[in-house]
C-alpha cells in the first residue's frame, strides 16, 4: 500500500470523525484533500469513500447526521443535507 493510499485511508477516518463532531467544514477539507491526492497519484478512492461523500458540497456523509439513506427499485439513494443525491445499485 503506497503512502498516497494510506493518506486517503487516514483522511477517510478523519472525515468521518469530523462529521460525528459536527465539524462539517473540517470534513470538507479532508474530503477535498483526499480527492486531490487520489487524482495526483491516480489511485482512485475506496468505494465507501466515493459513496459516502457528497459530490456537490464535498462533505462526508454520515447517515443519521447529515445524510438520508433510502432504497428504491434496484438502487440506494443517499441524500445530502444540501439536496444532492448519490445513487448506487444493489443486487436484490
Amino acid at each position: 500500500m503506497s503512502i498516497a493510499e494510506e493518506r486517503i485511508d487516514r483522511l477517510h477516518t478523519l472525515a468521518k470523525q469530523a462529521v460525528a463532531a459536527r465539524e462539517f467544514d473540517r470534513s470538507r477539507e479532508y474530503v477535498r484533500l483526499a480527492r486531490r491526492i487520489a487524482e495526483r497519484n491516480r489511485c482512485g478512492l475506496p468505494r465507501e469513500f466515493k459513496r459516502f461523500s457528497c459530490p456537490r458540497c464535498d462533505v462526508y456523509l454520515r447517515p443519521g447526521v447529515n445524510a438520508r439513506v433510502r432504497t428504491q427499485d434496484g438502487h440506494v439513494v443517499v441524500t445530502c443535507d444540501c439536496g444532492e443525491l448519490k445513487r448506487y445499485p444493489y443486487q436484490s
Binding site: 503512502i3 494510506e6 493518506r7 487516514r10 483522511l11 478523519l14 479532508y30 484533500l33
Partner: peptide, 10 residues
C-alpha cells in the same frame, strides 16, 4: 522516515 511525506492531519 516517511512522516514528512505522510498525512499530518490527526
Amino acid at each position: 522516515e516517511t512522516l514528512t511525506r505522510h498525512e499530518l492531519n490527526g
